[in-house]
Design a protein around this nucleic acid. Structure first.
Lengths: 220, 220
DNA sequence: GCCTGTGAAGCTATTCACAGCT
DNA sequence: AGCTGTGAATAGCTTCACAGGC
């Protein structure tokens, strides 16, 4: 098995996507047992060459005649992406977005449950939101340690995001999904994925606008 | 003013981020009137060289002595990113995530309001959710046209995402923020930004895991 | 001395293109 | 005939490094 470490961010993301596409195909419809790179590419919005390279990078091979064995491929991606004993995530900031993410993730992947949520609002502590127990933010570090959580989701306001991230890291979190518009300062060994919704929204708006005017301006 | 068209995706995203950082700095604290590239870089989680290049790309100059004039820079980014007459967005899929996004965006940028939401649930149509009117999905195309909306947000289940996107495009939408795990097939002139939450979550989990084992495996 | 603006270098990611297989 | 696996080419993005200015 090739070293997991040298694989880029983007490859990992696409592998996760491929897996989801394959699982979906696996359930509905005629359930083909084999799939060609160009078919998977179409499902994932990628290209055939890129799919082949990605699968090559995890050491998976297909046959020129039949393509890739779906069942085997899913298994191979599972082995590659998932920690054998599963991982636990925690979420800080049970506002609208936090709640939506709890609903979205809580029962998706059994290998990767959100095991606790945190908020400053005293009305929330002790309650169960979307199937997930809420605690006070003051208990964050302690609970993360206790639950051996490795993944943190930050959906708190910008003003407290850095503090929350630090507590997570102190508790042992090694990867953070950050929805706050703050550049978190964490040790280099902690992976941070920034999910800046406002940035993405403004970007879409910009290109929507530009494409509108493209016909006039493309002349340059 | 340099042509907006040649600017990449990533540059646009960072400009949006810089603007938000500057506006925040503009409000709280000592309100410095000037800022150096390395300061802005620290706020945005970028590098000084990249900040300078990004600002260069929109034709903005600073002075070596004082850095960049904050007020002027914000104005320049505004002129660059914002459509002069504003833009309107619509959202399809008023579930947990849709509601959270409505709450998040509705009153943020006056130049970019979400002017309508759509859902199949008849209990929602006619109601106002997070300050936004809800309509039936069947009215989507018509309303988009009527409101001259250029931006669409897709938070519907995967099974109906493609259909919703097509209706949006037919109504005149030119940019889509897609939260469904589906590779939308739209005309090349329509910009699509995929926000795959599950993919991002799994990616963070993967690197959280790998970093855990890094000390042992880095030996290779 | 410390900054900006920027050509050039260095990386990384993607696509091309084709040999080899079935 | 059409696919996979992959070296080589290309394209795109970021950093380097330094001239020029205050």
């Amino acid at each position: 098995m090739p070293h997991r470490n040298h694989l880029s961010d983007k490859v990992i993301g696409r592998l996760s996507l491929y897996r989801r596409m394959l699982e979906r195909a696996d359930n509905g419809g005629p359930e083909p047992e084999h799939i060609f790179s160009h078919e998977l590419a179409a499902m994932a919005g990628s290209t055939a060459a890129l799919v082949r390279r990605d699968l090559m990078s995890i050491g998976f091979s297909g046959s020129p005649k039949r393509g890739y064995d779906v069942r085997e491929l899913v298994g191979c991606i599972n082995d590659f992406l998932d920690a054998p004993d599963g991982q636990r995530a925690v979420l800080a900031g049970v506002g609208n977005l936090g709640r939506a993410l709890l609903a979205h993730f809580t029962f998706r992947r059994p290998k990767l449950p959100i095991v606790a949520a945190f908020d400053v609002d005293p009305n929330l502590t002790g309650r169960v939101v979307q199937g997930c127990h809420c605690f006070a933010v003051s208990e964050l570090r302690e609970k993360v340690e206790e639950l051996h959580a490795e993944v943190g989701i930050v959906t708190v306001p910008a003003s407290v995001a850095q503090g929350v991230a630090e507590e997570m890291v102190r508790g042992g979190v090694k990867g953070i999904m950050n929805f706050s518009p703050v550049a978190l300062r964490v040790p280099g060994s902690v992976f941070v994925e920034n999910m800046d919704l406002t940035m993405a929204f403004e970007k879409v708006a910009f290109f929507a606008w530009q494409h509108n005017h493209q016909k006039k301006e493309v002349a340059s």
